[in-house]
């Protein structure tokens, strides 16, 4: 279990990195935290011709407020930095719930926020969370730069809109509206293990305590994280009730997901879990929205 040989580049600026990526094209692969890439390389399942290591670019690791009142997170910010940043937890309690579930502390000390999103593992938490929090992703290459909504970023399992010369540079999380609540519910076989199914909900109430916005994202039950359309249709404009949560849960389980059977769980079980977890997460999220947490 040793990786194949590769060329290694360690740029010290974003500009230098983008130049190198442009030069390498399909041969190049970004090395961020490496916590998914290196195991795949050790198994020789991933065999990149060249790695462009972003770990020597300090300017890519930051958490800073945006002028809109949200947060901008640099792509190389370690997961553990996000996990333990009081500002992050205060503004986005969902991240406070999610981060400790991402593998184990040793992995989070090395793994990066942007790397996890760009890796686009359908069982990964952060791709889904970026959708749940309606993140804006800043993407740069040598020749172009663009903003892509997280909702539009993921195209398939381990696939995104990123071109080979692209780099996900920054993740911008817009501020929550008042009366917003969130909840993350996950079932995995073991603590720190892959989610068999998970649900992240971010909901907002209006002044009359009616649902104004509901973002329910489903993890590990499709090729990409799935933002539920039915949740929005059923909940927005309505008073949140237990019956409505049940209806959403059933609608999602029946129509919006495509879970797979593997050696750990059947598709039926995953479907059942989604139903349970959607209900649980909506109940808690609305409760928090009411309490203004």
């Amino acid at each position: 279990m040793k990786p194949v040989p590769f060329n290694y580049f360690a740029p010290t600026s974003v500009e230098e990195a983008l130049d190198k990526l442009a030069e390498l094209g399909y041969d190049g692969k970004i090395l961020a935290g490496g916590q998914s890439l290196v195991p795949a390389m050790n198994f020789r399942m991933a065999r990149p011709g060249a790695l462009v290591d972003l770990n020597n670019i300090p300017e890519l690791a930051y958490i800073k407020p945006t002028s809109e009142g949200g947060l901008a997170i640099g792509t190389m910010t370690r997961d553990s930095k996000v996990e333990h940043d009081p500002k992050v937890i205060e503004m986005f309690p969902l991240l406070g719930e999610v981060m400790p579930n991402i593998a184990h502390a040793q992995i989070r000390n090395r793994g990066t926020f942007g790397g996890s999103i760009a890796h686009a593992d359908p069982a990964g938490q952060l791709p889904a969370i970026s959708i749940a929090l309606d993140a804006n992703l800043f993407i740069q290459s040598k020749s172009k730069e663009r903003w892509v909504k997280a909702t539009d970023f993921f195209t398939g399992p381990f696939m995104t809109v990123l071109d080979p010369d692209d780099m996900l540079v920054e993740i911008v999380l817009p501020p929550h509206l008042p009366h917003t609540g969130s909840s993350y519910q996950q079932v995995s076989r073991q603590r720190g293990g892959y989610a068999q199914a998970a649900v992240a909900s971010v909901v907002t109430l209006d002044d009359q305590n009616r649902c104004k916005e509901a973002r329910v994202v489903l993890i590990s039950v499709g090729d990409t994280p799935i933002l539920s359309a039915r949740a929005k249709e059923i909940l927005v404009g309505q008073k949140p009730t237990a019956e409505a949560f049940k209806e959403v849960a059933q609608a999602i389980a029946a129509n919006e997901i495509d879970p797979a059977t593997d050696i750990h769980a059947t598709a039926d079980y995953r479907r059942h879990l989604v139903e349970v977890l959607v209900e649980r997460s909506l109940t808690i999220a609305f409760d928090r929205a009411k309490k203004g947490v």
Binding site: M1, K2, G34, Q35, V38, P39, N42, F43, S80, A103, H104, A105, Q106, I107, N109, R110
Partner: peptide, 21 residues
């Protein structure tokens, strides 16, 4: 050598990480 068992844990700039990854 795939980041699960933790036997290779070391401190990297003071933080525990998997040295196999």
């Amino acid at each position: 050598e795939h980041g699960i068992c933790g036997a290779c844990t070391i401190l990297f700039d003071g933080e525990p990480v998997r040295s196999c990854l």
